[in-house]
Each structure stands twice: as C-alpha cells, then as structure tokens.
Write a protein that binds this DNA or RNA. Structure first.
Lengths: 187, 187
DNA sequence: ATCAAAGTGTACTGATCGGTAAGTATTTGC
DNA sequence: GCAAATACTTACCGATCAGTACACTTTGAT
C-alpha cells in the first residue's frame, strides 16, 4: 500500500462525496471514478465509513489551512483577521462547484450525535471555533468566547444562506454584522 | 383516496424522514412504520420524490405557523418580535428529538439547484426571510432587507450550531447579536 | 343491495447497495 | 533476479433500493 496511492483515492473520493453527497455515492461509483479496482479500494479502506472519515480528515486539514492562510494574508491584527474570515468565505462561495460546507452536510446525513462521522464533523466546527476564539482573546474582547460564538453563527449562517437563499450577498452582510459585534466587544 | 389518510401518511413520513434522513429512509421502512401497504403508498404518491415534496410542504406550513404564532404571543412590537424569534428557536432546540432544520438537510441531500426538492427547501427559506423583512420594514429599519438578511444569518447559524457545535447557548448568543443589529438599524 | 373507490397482502422486477472470493498481473525492495 | 507486496479482473454474496402486478377485501354513497 503506497501511502500516496491512498491519498490519491481520498482526494478523488472527496470530490465525489462533496459533489453528490455521502449516501448518494456508492462504492461502485467511486471505483469507476477513481479507476481503481474494488478490491484495492477495500485494501485501503475496510469500510465505506472508514473512507468517509479519511475524506473528512483531509477536508478538515486543507480547509482550515486554506482559510487560516487566506486570513493571515489579508490582515495582521486579530480583529482585522476576524473580519477577513468573511472575505475568505466570499471567495469560497464564488468558487466553481461550491456546494456548501462538507461538515454541515456530513452532520445532516449522519445525525446520531455519537456516530463517528457526526463526531468528526462536530470536531471540525470546534476547531474553527477555537481559531476565532483565539483571535478574539488576542484582540482583547470583553467576553471572547461569546464573541467567537457569535462570529461563528454569522459564518455558519452565511454558508447556509449561500447555498439555500441565493438572495443578496451573505458574506458581505455577515462581514458588516461581524464588524459591529467586534466594535461593541472591543469598546 | 380519503384525503385524511394521505395526510396521515405525510405526517408519519415526516417523522421518519426528519429522524433518519431522506436517502437513508427507504419506502419499505415507511411502509412498515406507517402500517399501510406498499400498494396504497404508491396509490397516494407516485414516487418517493412526490412524497418528500408533500412532506416538505407540510413541514413548511406547520413550522412557519408555529414560529409565527409563538413570536406573536411573546411580543407585540415588530422589533420585539424579531428578537422573540430567537426565543422560539431556543424552545425548538430544547425539544425532544430536535434534529436541526429539515430544509437545510433537504438542501444538503439534494444539492442540484434545480432539483425540485432543493427548490422547495429554498422556497421555505425565502418565506422565512420575507417574514423577517416584513417585520424589519414595520420597525422602520434603515435598510430593512439587509437587516432581515443579517437576522436570518443569525437564525441559520444558531440552528447549525445547535446541531454540530453543542457548545454554549447559540439561541441566546444569536439573540443578543440580533438585538445589537436592531438597535443600530433603528437608531 | 350494489357498485366503485380505496384498501389489503404477497410476490415480484431489475438495479444498486456494501462488501468478498479466487486467481492473475505488476511493482517493489533487497 | 527474485520473492513479497500490492493491484488487477471478474464474478459473486445477501440485502436493500424504488416501483409494479395481481388478486382479494373493506368501505361509503346512492
């Protein structure tokens, strides 16, 4: 089992799961799309669930890396970086093939709170929260945890609105609301 | 086809779809859970998709009725009613068997923007937005559409956070943020 | 009482689900 | 160059998927 082969499978599976959903994507479809044989597929991943968990790990890592880097390129103060996260979201929404947040979708398809896939999706959201909370503390907010929670609300809301309520510019609206929250929390 | 029989099937199917998801719920499971025969099932609904659309119509109607009534019972000024919508959300989150927003989940499982199920989920979100926008106009907000969009962001964010980020009290955090937005938009 | 609508159970279709068996080819490290 | 690991093809498993055929029973309005 060459490690890069496995990674390649995870990358390709990520695309298909993201595009078509988890239950709607069968292992046979993945076998066709990756060009790998079914036997090899099951050599690398013992079950579909194990594959999905690997996909979510990759997505978590690459998404958080991307947004962290993008935010640091845009602003250098903690408060500025919180605001910049909404500019990054806007970029993401405008990407070709944008289909919403993979973790919201994973949580929606695997709803039991103790299901491994649900747990892993929740863990991603917790890490995203932690990032904002760290910035809020560095910015000197009055109640950094609450501010971070509110910022996250705006982020999640913007994602959902970008998918379902194609009305207006959710990232921009969220950005302005976030700015107001920041000003109030720092005053 | 007695109409009440059909409604009963929709009500029961709603529970199962809400609990287990759309793709994960087969027609056979619904037949068992409703006690109806498969033949009758397909007399009432020509396809699974038609059943899901009927379920979403019922959910849209009853959910919007419920939140509208709850909001009117809690406050009588337009601004107060906007804030009260977050108290209603909090009640909802604390219900037994709360599993998030059925329309977010429908949009997540049927992702193509022109899929009938996706379209109907989006329509529900539009109607929810319209309700808030109406209140924002009556309250005399400076830019009622933008305010309504921001309120909706907080609502959607609270729902997602209630499902995935069990951290804190999303409805309360959203409520406070909404209050701040309102004060600023009305000043 | 009758007749049609609406209900029933059972058995079936072909396709697809996740996952496996058996045997063969191709890389890979030493 | 050789052996072991890895990947391959093909065919298969039992279960479930959405949906249908057919023959039978209950129900309700006239």
């Amino acid at each position: 089992m060459r490690p890069n082969k496995r990674d390649e499978l995870v990358r390709k599976a990520l695309q298909v799961f993201y595009r078509d959903g988890f239950h709607a994507t069968g292992m046979d479809k993945l076998v066709v799309e990756t060009g790998v044989s079914k036997t090899s597929m099951y050599k690398h991943f013992r079950t579909k669930e194990e594959l999905i968990l690997a996909v979510l790990r990759l997505r978590d890592e690459s998404f958080r890396n991307w947004i962290l880097r993008r935010v640091e390129e845009t602003a250098d103060t903690p408060a500025g970086q919180i605001v910049a996260s909404f500019d990054a979201l806007k970029e993401w929404f405008e990407e070709d093939g944008f289909r919403g947040c993979m973790f919201i979708k994973a949580g929606a398809e695997y709803q039991e709170a103790d299901h491994p896939i649900h747990v892993q999706a929740a863990e991603h959201k917790r890490l995203m929260f932690e990032h904002i909370a760290r910035l809020a503390r560095k910015a000197g907010a009055r109640d950094p945890e609450k501010l971070a929670n509110q910022i996250v609300l705006l982020q999640e809301g913007a994602i959902v609105s970008a998918v379902l309520l194609k009305n207006g510019d959710p990232a921009e609206d969220a950005r302005e609301a976030a700015q107001l929250l920041l000003e109030t929390a720092l005053a």
